[in-house]
């Protein structure tokens, strides 16, 4: 039953990529996104927007995750191909997945972001993983991550650090 719940969450995340933003997604990031435009913290002229970015606190040298929703309001689709951050030795697009009774992480490569579509990064699901933080992240800090797209566009996002 549990793995089914998790898989349903995964599946709804995938559905979101095709622009089918129904009410099926789980997690707190979805609730806050529904609050409307007031929560859009970063929007760029490129038509790509980051909604409610936040990062977990963690010690220097450790790993952490950044969560947000990426939205594409452009007339054309794009594809997320990478992420980078000055705040860590390495950044990666990851997904937590439950297999049987075991939790694993796997890399996400080339995530489609169609016109009007959205990618939801959320706890226990897709996340931006920051590996080996250069400095500790404590609540109140911010950390910048930059998303790179297949079109050559990029989107820099400043995420506030907070405990969920």
């Amino acid at each position: 039953m549990t793995s089914r719940t998790i898989c349903a969450a995964c599946a709804s995340g995938l559905l979101l990529l095709s622009g089918a933003c129904g009410g099926s997604e789980q997690g707190s990031s979805q609730e806050s996104a529904d609050d409307g435009a007031a929560t859009v913290s970063v929007t760029t002229a490129t038509g790509l927007a980051a909604v409610e970015p936040w990062a977990r606190p963690a010690d220097a040298g450790k790993n952490t995750a950044v969560y947000l929703q990426l939205e594409n309001t452009l007339p054309d689709g794009d594809s997320l191909i990478g992420v980078r951050s000055e705040g860590a030795e390495r950044a990666a697009l990851h997904e937590s997945v439950m297999e049987g009774a075991t939790m694993r992480m796997r890399p996400m490569i080339g995530v489609a972001l169609p016109s009007g579509g959205r990618i939801a990064f959320r706890p226990m699901g897709p996340h931006v993983m920051l590996l080996r933080l250069r400095d500790p992240l404590v609540p109140g800090d911010t950390v910048e991550v930059t998303f790179d797209f297949a079109s050559g566009r990029s989107l820099a996002v400043r995420a506030g650090v907070r405990t969920p």
């Binding site: 998790i6 969450a9 390495r90 009774a101 939790m103 590996l131």
Partner: peptide, 28 residues
């Protein structure tokens, strides 16, 4: 390398006061 990840049990385990393994709390 420093960047390996670790697959690990998903559930929180709960042992009662009599030492019996009673509950598995799923993530979420």
């Amino acid at each position: 390398t420093p960047d390996y990840t670790v697959a690990h049990p998903a559930h929180t385990f709960v042992v009662d006061a009599d030492g019996r393994f009673r509950l598995m709390i799923p993530p979420g």
